[in-house]
Amino acid sequence: MNAKSENWFGHDVKPGEAISTELVISESYSSRDVAIPIRVRRGLNPGPTVFVTAALHGDELNGTGAIRSMLGDPSWELASGTLLMVPVLNVLGFERHSRYLPDRRDLNRCFPGNTTGSMASRLAKVMFDSIVRRCDFGIDLHTAAVRRTNFPNARADLDNPTCLKLAEAFGSGIILHGKGPKGSFRREATAAGCPTIVVEGGEVWKVESSVADCMLRGVFNILKTLKMMDGPPDIPEHQAIIKQTKWIRAERGGFMSMHVAPGDSVVKGQALASNSNLLTEDQNRLEAPFSGIVIGMTTLPAVQPGEPVVHIGRLANPKSALRHDQHVASDDVQRTALQHLATNVQVTEPEELPSS
């Protein structure tokens, strides 16, 4: 039986139709509407309702690039269900090139929100009620924070079987376990009955083609797994499950020489970065405390003691650990991302340290 017409944001959307609309979330100082643009696309047949959002942090734009690629590509079709595509969720942060809202609050700590709280809480309430509570599944696209980069990875509450299914179907190659912080979009959406995953990849303030391609393929993979698109999903042969991560922090101030790149596999004791003064003297070295995968790292070579340098994830199954010369990238899309992200930092071979 064919799907019926649905009302989205004041518009009746028939099966097979797509509309561009807006969701009014607040008012400006001049009392004008503040709205987020949304594309609603429906398949001909009944099916799940899925949202894909980006720029919940207003400076994280790789997901925006991925969604815009979907919007501009006429070659794909939605066979069933309803898809909500939101290129920029945090429009107020986006317009200021900022992670945060104008009041410095992090929107991603304010869900599900309330109608009488702060501006951030009120925005969160409108978004949550209008989008999340009407959807069956969610995909939220992010990047690393400022001065950092991430190899594309999916993050989900793996104790939730549906979240695990979505994370595996996305096919990023790296899956991190976690519910997410209290008040975060994915945690509260999942708790409200809309299983949601987060995907992290790349840096802020830019659209990196290889990262956006990974995100685009992942969204299509999930839609195919949910039978909303025709065809088999394109999922890598191997994916790493990570349940423990650790930031390796600088021990001294100085200039870092990096010896690994995002996506690299490392073994316990392997050199990650070397630290020296500006005359390359007083060198010390940061080493991997366990075998695992480089999830992310700083892109700022100058550090002070305690600043994060390399983010490592420990594989959930130690027997599946890769050699130090292997990578998590097992297909062309992942390998392209690995090569691209490796150019964001200068990676050198470690020098021999003088014996004590």
Rank of each mutant, 00 (worst) to 15 (best):
A169W: 09
L44Q: 15
S121H: 03
D103A: 06
R187L: 05
R133I: 04
T115N: 11
P48K: 15
L286N: 04
S330H: 06
I293P: 01
N317A: 11
P112W: 06
G171A: 06
D332K: 12
A145K: 15
L101K: 15
P232W: 04
F290G: 03
V132H: 07
G93W: 10
H97A: 14
K14W: 02
Q270D: 09
I295V: 14
P308G: 04
Q270K: 13
L61D: 10
G173N: 12
M85G: 00
V199S: 05
E27L: 14
G81K: 06
R217C: 13
F185D: 07
M258N: 09
Q326R: 10
T343Q: 01
L101T: 15
W205R: 13
N7M: 08
W76A: 07
P15S: 14
P87Y: 13
G254F: 07
V333Q: 01
S172M: 10
F111V: 05
G47I: 11
A66I: 00
G138P: 01
G201V: 01
H97L: 11
W247P: 04
D106T: 15
L338G: 05
R99W: 02
T298W: 03
I19S: 04
G173V: 02
D12Y: 02
F51V: 14
K165I: 00
C110M: 14
T115R: 12
N7T: 15
L279Q: 02
H142T: 03
P232Q: 14
A54H: 03
V88D: 10
P48W: 08
S209H: 06
R249H: 12
Q244S: 14
G117V: 12
E352N: 07
M70A: 01
G171V: 03
R41L: 05
I235L: 06
I312G: 00
S75D: 09
D234K: 11
G171T: 03
A124Y: 07
G178S: 14
V198Q: 09
R39Y: 02
C135G: 04
S257C: 07
P305E: 01
F137Y: 15
K182I: 10
C194I: 07
H11F: 07
I139L: 12
L279I: 03
Q283G: 08
L71A: 10
T82V: 13
N150Q: 05
Y100M: 15
K246W: 06
S69Y: 00
D213P: 00
D136E: 10
V50L: 15
F137W: 04
R41N: 01
L56G: 07
R147D: 08
E27R: 15
S184I: 05
G93E: 11
L107A: 09
T280A: 09
G269Q: 06
S276G: 12
I312F: 03
K243H: 06
